[in-house]
Design a protein around this nucleic acid. Structure first.
Lengths: 170, 170
DNA sequence: TTGCTATTTAGCAGGTCTTGCGAAGAAAGA
DNA sequence: TCTTTCTTCGCAAGACCTGCTAAATAGCAA
Protein backbone atom coordinates (compact mmCIF):
# COMPACT_ATOMS: atom_id res chain seq x y z
CA UNK A 1 0.00 0.00 0.00
CA UNK A 2 1.25 3.44 -0.91
CA UNK A 3 2.15 6.10 1.62
CA UNK A 4 -0.60 8.37 2.95
CA UNK A 5 0.60 11.33 0.88
CA UNK A 6 0.45 9.34 -2.33
CA UNK A 7 -2.97 7.98 -1.51
CA UNK A 8 -4.15 11.50 -0.84
CA UNK A 9 -2.99 12.56 -4.29
CA UNK A 10 -4.52 9.48 -5.90
CA UNK A 11 -7.86 10.04 -4.25
CA UNK A 12 -8.00 13.66 -5.27
CA UNK A 13 -6.92 12.81 -8.81
CA UNK A 14 -9.84 10.39 -8.99
CA UNK A 15 -12.30 13.03 -7.84
CA UNK A 16 -12.53 11.50 -4.40
CA UNK A 17 -12.31 13.66 -1.34
CA UNK A 18 -9.70 13.37 1.30
CA UNK A 19 -11.35 13.56 4.68
CA UNK A 20 -9.70 13.43 8.11
CA UNK A 21 -11.25 9.97 8.57
CA UNK A 22 -9.61 8.69 5.40
CA UNK A 23 -6.29 10.24 6.28
CA UNK A 24 -6.35 8.57 9.67
CA UNK A 25 -7.12 5.22 8.10
CA UNK A 26 -4.39 5.69 5.49
CA UNK A 27 -1.94 6.21 8.34
CA UNK A 28 -3.22 3.30 10.40
CA UNK A 29 -3.07 0.87 7.52
CA UNK A 30 0.20 1.96 5.96
CA UNK A 31 2.74 -0.74 6.73
CA UNK A 32 0.39 -2.25 9.27
CA UNK A 33 1.45 -5.86 9.73
CA UNK A 34 -1.38 -6.98 12.00
CA UNK A 35 -3.91 -7.94 9.29
CA UNK A 36 -6.69 -6.16 11.15
CA UNK A 37 -10.38 -6.76 10.67
CA UNK A 38 -12.62 -3.76 10.01
CA UNK A 39 -13.78 -4.00 13.60
CA UNK A 40 -10.32 -4.01 15.14
CA UNK A 41 -9.14 -1.18 12.91
CA UNK A 42 -12.26 0.68 13.97
CA UNK A 43 -11.38 0.31 17.62
CA UNK A 44 -7.90 1.68 17.03
CA UNK A 45 -9.27 4.47 14.86
CA UNK A 46 -11.85 5.35 17.51
CA UNK A 47 -9.04 5.92 19.94
CA UNK A 48 -7.50 8.53 17.63
CA UNK A 49 -10.78 9.97 16.43
CA UNK A 50 -13.71 9.35 18.77
CA UNK A 51 -16.97 9.27 16.87
CA UNK A 52 -15.63 7.78 13.66
CA UNK A 53 -18.12 5.33 12.31
CA UNK A 54 -17.57 1.64 11.72
CA UNK A 55 -19.44 2.24 8.46
CA UNK A 56 -16.74 4.64 7.35
CA UNK A 57 -14.01 2.17 8.18
CA UNK A 58 -15.70 -0.50 6.07
CA UNK A 59 -16.22 2.00 3.30
CA UNK A 60 -12.63 3.16 3.20
CA UNK A 61 -11.19 -0.33 3.44
CA UNK A 62 -13.43 -1.43 0.60
CA UNK A 63 -12.38 1.58 -1.46
CA UNK A 64 -8.70 0.90 -0.87
CA UNK A 65 -9.23 -2.74 -1.82
CA UNK A 66 -10.98 -1.74 -5.04
CA UNK A 67 -8.04 0.48 -5.89
CA UNK A 68 -5.69 -2.41 -5.31
CA UNK A 69 -3.98 -0.72 -2.38
CA UNK A 70 -5.11 -3.33 0.10
CA UNK A 71 -5.52 -7.05 -0.18
CA UNK A 72 -8.59 -8.57 1.41
CA UNK A 73 -7.81 -11.84 3.07
CA UNK A 74 -10.23 -14.41 4.41
CA UNK A 75 -8.67 -16.89 6.77
CA UNK A 76 -12.03 -18.40 7.67
CA UNK A 77 -12.24 -16.74 11.06
CA UNK A 78 -15.48 -14.95 10.33
CA UNK A 79 -14.38 -11.39 9.66
CA UNK A 80 -12.39 -10.30 6.62
CA UNK A 81 -8.87 -9.06 7.21
CA UNK A 82 -7.01 -6.37 5.33
CA UNK A 83 -3.39 -6.52 4.29
CA UNK A 84 -1.41 -3.54 2.99
CA UNK A 85 1.41 -5.83 1.85
CA UNK A 86 1.03 -6.15 -1.91
CA UNK A 87 4.05 -8.41 -2.43
CA UNK A 88 3.42 -11.89 -3.72
CA UNK A 89 3.04 -13.63 -0.40
CA UNK A 90 0.85 -15.97 1.59
CA UNK A 91 -0.29 -16.40 5.18
CA UNK A 92 0.37 -18.33 8.34
CA UNK A 93 -2.73 -18.63 10.51
CA UNK A 94 -2.50 -19.68 14.14
CA UNK A 95 -5.37 -22.00 14.95
CA UNK A 96 -5.12 -21.10 18.60
CA UNK A 97 -4.87 -17.32 18.83
CA UNK A 98 -6.00 -16.43 15.31
CA UNK A 99 -2.88 -14.43 14.59
CA UNK A 100 -2.03 -14.01 10.89
CA UNK A 101 1.50 -13.57 9.60
CA UNK A 102 2.87 -12.96 6.15
CA UNK A 103 4.99 -15.69 4.65
CA UNK A 104 6.97 -15.84 1.43
CA UNK A 105 6.75 -19.06 -0.53
CA UNK A 106 9.15 -19.91 -3.33
CA UNK A 107 7.76 -21.55 -6.44
CA UNK A 108 4.12 -21.29 -5.54
CA UNK A 109 3.54 -19.94 -9.02
CA UNK A 110 4.72 -23.18 -10.58
CA UNK A 111 2.84 -25.64 -8.42
CA UNK A 112 2.39 -28.86 -10.29
CA UNK A 113 -1.31 -29.02 -10.83
CA UNK A 114 -2.98 -31.98 -12.50
CA UNK A 115 -6.05 -31.72 -14.69
CA UNK A 116 -6.48 -27.98 -14.78
CA UNK A 117 -8.64 -28.85 -17.72
CA UNK A 118 -9.30 -25.42 -19.14
CA UNK A 119 -9.53 -23.56 -15.87
CA UNK A 120 -7.61 -20.27 -16.13
CA UNK A 121 -5.87 -19.59 -12.84
CA UNK A 122 -5.65 -15.94 -11.91
CA UNK A 123 -4.43 -15.90 -8.31
CA UNK A 124 -3.25 -18.56 -5.92
CA UNK A 125 -3.88 -18.26 -2.21
CA UNK A 126 -2.05 -20.44 0.27
CA UNK A 127 -2.99 -20.62 3.93
CA UNK A 128 -0.79 -22.48 6.38
CA UNK A 129 -2.80 -23.36 9.45
CA UNK A 130 -0.96 -24.35 12.59
CA UNK A 131 0.40 -22.99 15.82
CA UNK A 132 2.53 -19.92 16.34
CA UNK A 133 5.45 -20.20 18.73
CA UNK A 134 3.79 -18.58 21.76
CA UNK A 135 0.73 -20.80 21.40
CA UNK A 136 2.82 -23.92 20.86
CA UNK A 137 4.61 -23.29 24.13
CA UNK A 138 1.36 -22.75 26.01
CA UNK A 139 -0.21 -25.80 24.39
CA UNK A 140 2.77 -27.96 25.33
CA UNK A 141 2.36 -27.15 29.00
CA UNK A 142 -1.29 -28.15 29.03
CA UNK A 143 -0.85 -30.97 26.54
CA UNK A 144 -2.30 -33.62 28.84
CA UNK A 145 -5.70 -31.94 28.68
CA UNK A 146 -5.61 -31.19 24.99
CA UNK A 147 -7.47 -32.63 22.02
CA UNK A 148 -10.69 -34.47 22.94
CA UNK A 149 -10.77 -35.26 19.21
CA UNK A 150 -12.66 -38.55 19.12
CA UNK A 151 -16.42 -38.65 19.15
CA UNK A 152 -18.83 -35.93 18.30
CA UNK A 153 -18.86 -32.90 20.42
CA UNK A 154 -21.77 -30.54 20.18
CA UNK A 155 -19.69 -27.65 21.35
CA UNK A 156 -18.29 -25.73 18.47
CA UNK A 157 -14.53 -25.61 18.59
CA UNK A 158 -14.22 -24.21 15.11
CA UNK A 159 -11.84 -21.46 14.17
CA UNK A 160 -14.70 -18.98 14.14
CA UNK A 161 -14.47 -18.67 17.89
CA UNK A 162 -10.86 -17.74 18.18
CA UNK A 163 -10.31 -15.42 21.08
CA UNK A 164 -8.65 -12.09 20.93
CA UNK A 165 -6.83 -11.75 17.61
CA UNK A 166 -3.72 -9.81 18.48
CA UNK A 167 -3.43 -6.32 17.18
CA UNK A 168 -0.03 -4.79 16.89
CA UNK A 169 -0.79 -1.24 15.99
CA UNK A 170 0.44 2.03 17.33
CA UNK B 1 -16.67 -39.80 3.17
CA UNK B 2 -17.84 -43.31 3.92
CA UNK B 3 -20.87 -44.90 2.34
CA UNK B 4 -24.28 -44.34 3.94
CA UNK B 5 -24.40 -47.89 5.35
CA UNK B 6 -21.05 -47.46 7.09
CA UNK B 7 -22.03 -44.09 8.47
CA UNK B 8 -25.22 -45.62 9.81
CA UNK B 9 -23.20 -48.23 11.65
CA UNK B 10 -20.74 -45.64 12.92
CA UNK B 11 -23.47 -43.39 14.22
CA UNK B 12 -25.20 -46.20 16.02
CA UNK B 13 -21.92 -47.45 17.45
CA UNK B 14 -21.37 -43.98 18.88
CA UNK B 15 -24.80 -43.94 20.48
CA UNK B 16 -26.13 -41.55 17.90
CA UNK B 17 -29.45 -42.20 16.27
CA UNK B 18 -29.96 -42.73 12.61
CA UNK B 19 -32.94 -40.71 11.53
CA UNK B 20 -34.47 -40.52 8.05
CA UNK B 21 -33.11 -36.96 7.84
CA UNK B 22 -29.58 -38.14 8.50
CA UNK B 23 -29.87 -41.03 6.09
CA UNK B 24 -31.03 -38.68 3.37
CA UNK B 25 -28.12 -36.35 4.01
CA UNK B 26 -25.67 -39.27 4.05
CA UNK B 27 -26.93 -40.21 0.61
CA UNK B 28 -26.89 -36.68 -0.74
CA UNK B 29 -23.36 -36.02 0.44
CA UNK B 30 -21.79 -39.34 -0.42
CA UNK B 31 -19.55 -38.78 -3.43
CA UNK B 32 -21.15 -35.39 -3.97
CA UNK B 33 -18.71 -33.35 -6.02
CA UNK B 34 -20.58 -30.06 -5.96
CA UNK B 35 -19.16 -28.67 -2.70
CA UNK B 36 -22.58 -27.57 -1.55
CA UNK B 37 -23.27 -24.99 1.11
CA UNK B 38 -25.65 -25.93 3.92
CA UNK B 39 -28.30 -23.86 2.22
CA UNK B 40 -27.97 -25.50 -1.18
CA UNK B 41 -27.89 -28.98 0.33
CA UNK B 42 -30.99 -27.98 2.27
CA UNK B 43 -32.80 -27.05 -0.91
CA UNK B 44 -31.97 -30.40 -2.48
CA UNK B 45 -32.88 -32.24 0.70
CA UNK B 46 -36.18 -30.35 0.91
CA UNK B 47 -37.07 -31.69 -2.48
CA UNK B 48 -36.66 -35.27 -1.23
CA UNK B 49 -38.07 -34.64 2.21
CA UNK B 50 -40.32 -31.59 2.45
CA UNK B 51 -40.26 -30.13 5.92
CA UNK B 52 -36.68 -31.01 6.76
CA UNK B 53 -35.15 -28.17 8.68
CA UNK B 54 -32.16 -26.10 7.67
CA UNK B 55 -31.12 -26.42 11.30
CA UNK B 56 -30.93 -30.19 10.89
CA UNK B 57 -28.82 -29.88 7.78
CA UNK B 58 -26.35 -27.65 9.59
CA UNK B 59 -26.35 -30.01 12.55
CA UNK B 60 -25.67 -33.10 10.49
CA UNK B 61 -23.00 -31.45 8.38
CA UNK B 62 -21.29 -30.24 11.53
CA UNK B 63 -21.48 -33.70 13.05
CA UNK B 64 -20.01 -35.30 9.95
CA UNK B 65 -17.23 -32.72 9.94
CA UNK B 66 -16.44 -33.41 13.59
CA UNK B 67 -16.21 -37.10 12.77
CA UNK B 68 -13.81 -36.32 9.98
CA UNK B 69 -16.17 -37.58 7.31
CA UNK B 70 -16.53 -34.21 5.66
CA UNK B 71 -14.10 -31.39 5.07
CA UNK B 72 -15.34 -27.89 5.66
CA UNK B 73 -14.02 -25.50 3.05
CA UNK B 74 -14.16 -21.75 3.04
CA UNK B 75 -13.54 -20.18 -0.33
CA UNK B 76 -14.42 -16.73 0.91
CA UNK B 77 -17.80 -16.64 -0.77
CA UNK B 78 -19.71 -16.14 2.44
CA UNK B 79 -21.14 -19.55 3.18
CA UNK B 80 -19.09 -22.57 4.21
CA UNK B 81 -18.94 -25.47 1.79
CA UNK B 82 -18.73 -29.14 2.55
CA UNK B 83 -16.55 -31.65 0.75
CA UNK B 84 -16.87 -35.43 1.13
CA UNK B 85 -13.54 -35.93 -0.65
CA UNK B 86 -11.01 -36.67 2.08
CA UNK B 87 -8.02 -37.11 -0.24
CA UNK B 88 -5.20 -34.64 0.07
CA UNK B 89 -6.39 -32.11 -2.44
CA UNK B 90 -7.07 -28.44 -3.01
CA UNK B 91 -9.61 -26.28 -4.81
CA UNK B 92 -10.22 -24.34 -7.96
CA UNK B 93 -12.67 -21.48 -7.44
CA UNK B 94 -14.33 -19.73 -10.35
CA UNK B 95 -14.47 -16.01 -9.68
CA UNK B 96 -17.39 -15.65 -12.03
CA UNK B 97 -19.86 -18.41 -11.21
CA UNK B 98 -18.51 -19.46 -7.82
CA UNK B 99 -18.11 -23.07 -8.84
CA UNK B 100 -15.60 -25.06 -6.78
CA UNK B 101 -13.66 -28.01 -8.17
CA UNK B 102 -11.24 -30.41 -6.57
CA UNK B 103 -7.67 -30.28 -7.78
CA UNK B 104 -4.68 -32.42 -6.97
CA UNK B 105 -1.40 -30.62 -6.44
CA UNK B 106 1.94 -32.41 -6.40
CA UNK B 107 4.53 -31.34 -3.89
CA UNK B 108 2.40 -28.91 -1.96
CA UNK B 109 3.65 -30.60 1.18
CA UNK B 110 7.17 -29.50 0.48
CA UNK B 111 6.57 -25.91 -0.47
CA UNK B 112 9.68 -23.89 0.11
CA UNK B 113 8.70 -21.59 2.90
CA UNK B 114 11.04 -18.91 4.19
CA UNK B 115 11.17 -17.78 7.79
CA UNK B 116 8.70 -20.17 9.30
CA UNK B 117 10.39 -19.07 12.43
CA UNK B 118 8.94 -21.52 14.92
CA UNK B 119 5.47 -21.69 13.45
CA UNK B 120 4.29 -25.33 13.38
CA UNK B 121 2.30 -25.93 10.21
CA UNK B 122 -0.55 -28.38 10.58
CA UNK B 123 -2.52 -28.11 7.35
CA UNK B 124 -2.00 -26.26 4.11
CA UNK B 125 -4.90 -25.07 2.01
CA UNK B 126 -4.46 -23.83 -1.51
CA UNK B 127 -7.12 -21.97 -3.41
CA UNK B 128 -6.71 -21.28 -7.11
CA UNK B 129 -8.97 -18.42 -8.12
CA UNK B 130 -9.72 -17.88 -11.76
CA UNK B 131 -12.22 -18.68 -14.46
CA UNK B 132 -13.70 -22.04 -15.31
CA UNK B 133 -14.01 -22.95 -18.97
CA UNK B 134 -17.70 -22.08 -19.41
CA UNK B 135 -17.21 -18.68 -17.78
CA UNK B 136 -14.06 -17.98 -19.77
CA UNK B 137 -15.96 -18.52 -22.99
CA UNK B 138 -18.79 -16.24 -21.90
CA UNK B 139 -16.35 -13.60 -20.69
CA UNK B 140 -14.45 -13.67 -23.99
CA UNK B 141 -17.56 -12.87 -25.97
CA UNK B 142 -18.33 -9.81 -23.89
CA UNK B 143 -14.70 -8.84 -23.36
CA UNK B 144 -15.12 -5.36 -24.80
CA UNK B 145 -17.42 -4.49 -21.91
CA UNK B 146 -15.42 -6.25 -19.25
CA UNK B 147 -13.27 -4.99 -16.40
CA UNK B 148 -14.05 -1.39 -15.43
CA UNK B 149 -11.11 -1.89 -13.07
CA UNK B 150 -9.84 1.67 -12.70
CA UNK B 151 -11.53 4.02 -10.30
CA UNK B 152 -13.62 3.20 -7.33
CA UNK B 153 -16.97 1.69 -7.84
CA UNK B 154 -19.44 1.79 -5.02
CA UNK B 155 -21.22 -1.23 -6.32
CA UNK B 156 -19.87 -4.33 -4.73
CA UNK B 157 -18.47 -6.70 -7.28
CA UNK B 158 -16.83 -8.88 -4.68
CA UNK B 159 -16.94 -12.63 -4.69
CA UNK B 160 -19.62 -12.55 -2.00
CA UNK B 161 -22.24 -11.80 -4.61
CA UNK B 162 -21.56 -14.65 -6.95
CA UNK B 163 -24.74 -15.70 -8.63
CA UNK B 164 -26.12 -19.14 -8.64
CA UNK B 165 -23.39 -21.53 -7.48
CA UNK B 166 -23.93 -24.57 -9.62
CA UNK B 167 -25.22 -27.63 -7.92
CA UNK B 168 -24.75 -30.93 -9.61
CA UNK B 169 -26.75 -33.26 -7.45
CA UNK B 170 -29.37 -35.86 -8.21
C1' DT C 1 -45.60 -55.19 20.63
C1' DT C 2 -45.28 -51.92 24.07
C1' DG C 3 -43.02 -48.78 26.93
C1' DC C 4 -39.16 -46.05 28.22
C1' DT C 5 -35.55 -42.74 27.72
C1' DA C 6 -31.99 -40.32 25.58
C1' DT C 7 -31.38 -38.19 21.33
C1' DT C 8 -33.05 -35.50 17.52
C1' DT C 9 -35.88 -32.37 15.05
C1' DA C 10 -38.02 -28.03 13.84
C1' DG C 11 -38.46 -23.42 14.30
C1' DC C 12 -37.46 -19.28 15.99
C1' DA C 13 -34.66 -16.01 18.42
C1' DG C 14 -30.33 -14.06 18.58
C1' DG C 15 -25.31 -13.23 17.30
C1' DT C 16 -21.77 -11.78 14.04
C1' DC C 17 -20.27 -9.61 10.02
C1' DT C 18 -21.37 -6.65 6.34
C1' DT C 19 -23.97 -3.59 3.21
C1' DG C 20 -27.98 -0.36 1.79
C1' DC C 21 -29.99 3.87 2.50
C1' DG C 22 -30.77 8.80 3.37
C1' DA C 23 -30.21 13.03 5.96
C1' DA C 24 -26.76 15.99 7.54
C1' DG C 25 -22.13 17.47 6.98
C1' DA C 26 -17.82 18.67 4.72
C1' DA C 27 -14.18 18.92 0.84
C1' DA C 28 -12.75 21.36 -3.07
C1' DG C 29 -13.29 24.07 -7.10
C1' DA C 30 -15.57 28.48 -8.95
C1' DT D 1 -18.04 32.80 -0.08
C1' DC D 2 -20.93 29.74 -2.61
C1' DT D 3 -22.14 25.59 -4.73
C1' DT D 4 -21.76 21.03 -6.03
C1' DT D 5 -20.63 16.60 -5.12
C1' DC D 6 -18.92 13.32 -2.25
C1' DT D 7 -18.67 11.50 2.51
C1' DT D 8 -20.01 10.37 7.02
C1' DC D 9 -22.96 8.49 10.40
C1' DG D 10 -26.33 5.66 12.21
C1' DC D 11 -29.73 2.57 11.71
C1' DA D 12 -32.06 -1.03 9.35
C1' DA D 13 -31.62 -5.10 7.08
C1' DG D 14 -29.44 -9.13 4.87
C1' DA D 15 -26.59 -13.38 4.94
C1' DC D 16 -24.89 -16.97 7.52
C1' DC D 17 -24.78 -19.65 11.55
C1' DT D 18 -25.77 -21.26 16.42
C1' DG D 19 -28.45 -21.58 20.96
C1' DC D 20 -32.52 -23.03 22.94
C1' DT D 21 -36.66 -25.82 23.87
C1' DA D 22 -40.97 -28.34 23.22
C1' DA D 23 -42.43 -32.11 20.70
C1' DA D 24 -41.24 -36.14 18.22
C1' DT D 25 -38.83 -40.37 17.61
C1' DA D 26 -34.99 -44.02 17.38
C1' DG D 27 -33.55 -47.84 19.57
C1' DC D 28 -33.25 -50.73 23.45
C1' DA D 29 -35.46 -53.88 26.84
C1' DA D 30 -39.10 -56.57 28.31
Amino acid sequence: MRAPAELTAMFRASGLKVTPQRQLLFRLMHENKSHPTAESLFSVASHHMPGISLRTVYQTLTDLSSMGELRLIDVGSGAARFDPNLDDHHHLVCQSCGDVRDIYVSGSGQLDVNELDGFAVDTTTILFHGLCTPCRVTQKVSSTVAKPLVGISKSNTSSKNITNPKERMS
